[in-house]
């Protein structure tokens, strides 16, 4: 990006803005678990032995959950959101140059400002720079495959990278992951902590991915698929994909009518 922000400076959501109650410090909205993959999802075999079988104990958000770590620009380096440059040794990494951008919002539609977003991915050939990845596609000497950014005051983030490739993995004998980028997001409270994956519009591996199809809700699955965003692309340089991330909303405390100890 040569220190330039991508073209879209003031991204607007293409959907109605919900009414946002005043920002409070109540607990977070009850998590709608029907849109998340269940812990035990036998089609994704690794989940079978790693899924709790007892009911989760519901905990009204206490101070331990509505608080969470705060990060600042001091935690980051200048190239942290530039995966094309942050590990370059003797040239640019191989692959389709892309910009990924979007907003971190909460369920009320408000941007989540100054929150840490971390991302990691395979290289253009589908190989991770990880000592445990043995896929035959080569490591790219100029690509690390990770980065991070803080959202701005409106919840906006962006980074540039190369489009990751699909790769095979051991689930069924011929299982392939669609191209994807992993995202880790914090929010303002530890109860908002989320890891997810972004997929690319039009990828034919999406509907047959054993991990993606653990999500029982079709709309929730579609919301993980980033559309091509031609308006945010850099002509003769990079295409762009748009990926908004929604974290849990926070209840307001309109009235302080609880007596102490209650």
């Amino acid at each position: 990006m040569n220190a330039q922000a991508p073209a879209l400076q003031d991204p607007r959501l293409n959907r109605p803005e919900p009414l946002a109650p005043p920002l409070g410090d109540g607990g977070f909205f009850q998590r709608d678990r029907s849109i998340h993959p269940p812990a035990h999802a036998p089609g994704y075999k690794s989940s079978v032995l790693r899924s709790p079988r007892q009911s989760l104990l519901s905990l009204e958000g206490s101070v331990s959950e509505i608080t969470g770590p705060v990060f600042g620009h001091n935690d980051l380096g200048p190239l942290d959101n530039d995966l094309i440059r942050n590990y370059a040794k003797d040239g640019d990494p191989v692959g389709e140059r892309i910009i990924v951008h979007g907003r971190v919002l909460d369920e009320t539609g408000r941007g989540v400002p100054n929150t840490l977003v971390e991302f990691w991915q395979a290289n253009a050939g589908g190989r991770y720079r990880h000592k445990k990845d043995t896929y035959l596609a080569p490591i790219d000497p100029n690509f690390g495959g990770c980065g991070r950014a803080l959202t701005d005051d409106t919840g906006y983030y962006y980074f540039r990278t190369v489009k990751p490739g699909p790769y095979p993995w051991r689930n069924y004998v011929n299982s392939w992951r669609p191209a994807h980028i992993h995202f880790s997001v914090f929010g303002s409270g530890f109860a908002q902590r989320l890891i997810t994956q972004m997929y690319f519009e039009g990828d034919p591996l999406i509907p047959i991915c054993p991990i993606l199809t653990t999500i029982p809700d079709k709309d929730a699955l579609d919301r993980l698929v980033a559309p091509l965003d031609l308006n945010a692309s850099a002509p003769f340089d990079s295409l762009a994909y748009r990926f908004d991330i929604v974290l849990r909303g926070q209840r307001s405390t309109y009235f302080e009518n609880r007596t102490a100890g209650n």
């Binding site: 849109i35 998340h36 369920e107 991330i245």
Partner: peptide, 14 residues
């Protein structure tokens, strides 16, 4: 018109 939380996905082996 509330938005829906983004679905979680596994952090994966890497």
């Amino acid at each position: 018109n509330y938005l829906k939380e983004t679905a979680s996905q596994t952090a994966g082996p890497y």
